[in-house]
Amino acid sequence: MTTAAQRTTMVTTPFGEVGGGLLGAIYIVWWRDIIRYWRDRARVGASLAQPLLYLVIFGTGLASSLGGGFGSSAGAAGVSYTTFIFPGVISMSVLFTSIFGAMSIVWDREFGFMRELLVAPIDRAAIAVGKTLGGATQAMIQGLILLVLAPFVGVTLSPAVVLEIVVLTFVLAFGLSAMGVALASYMRSMQGFQVVMNFLMMPMFFLSGALFPLVGLPSWMTVLTRLNPASYGIDPIRRTLLGSSGFPVERFAINIFDRTLPIAVEAAIVLAFGLVMLAVAVRAFQRRD
């Protein structure tokens, strides 16, 4: 039988500052997500099907009807449509993985492991941050896996470009995961999930520049695309990936008031958006009914 004295030492150990404090707790939540992801490799494979459909069927189909000179103007060489949407498909994979991953929180909170975390003596901020980083890591990997297709769409990769893409993809994954976690933290049932799908995720995807350039659009649509945080995540990925392979990609770049935004500024916008969303999620998690 355990004595009361033993119990007291348990509470007052240096580890009483549980699991190594906030960072330790974030690490635990993140680690759990990564282990799960790694164990569920079948899902990883299955989730590549959709991007492949877009790239191979949608891309090839549209490329054929547009002709090879997509985006060619003023005598400059064009970009094949398949090549154009390659970064868009990577981003789509990131977007869907981020949002779907975050939505699992809703179920997990009522009936799953999340309750174990919610009653644990850890700061709930750690749950929000850990889930966001865990989701972002998975989404980033889901996006980066698609880089193996680069040679087939005429994109050449160098270590420097890959490194840059890793960073930019993570920034996008972080922004979207934080948004997903923030949304999930306010949702009480899975019914809200359909709403998020139809009124947020799909519009975000269509208005992000993943499937067509965000230039020369009607003004209402131009405004919407510029308000879409995902646009600023996809644009730098495209410019980096295609630009380094010599494609004239600058003419697709997002411009605001006729000025093209530097990649660093775009990444900063997504990062800032992610941090705001994370703050919202942290607040929601810390609240008790």
Partner: peptide
């Protein structure tokens, strides 16, 4: 409220770390 993608030991391990 177990994590069913983890082993029995991992579930306990995780709990021990959190606490």
């Amino acid at each position: 409220s177990l994590d069913d993608q983890l082993t029995a030991r991992e579930n306990l391990e995780l709990h021990g770390r959190i606490y």
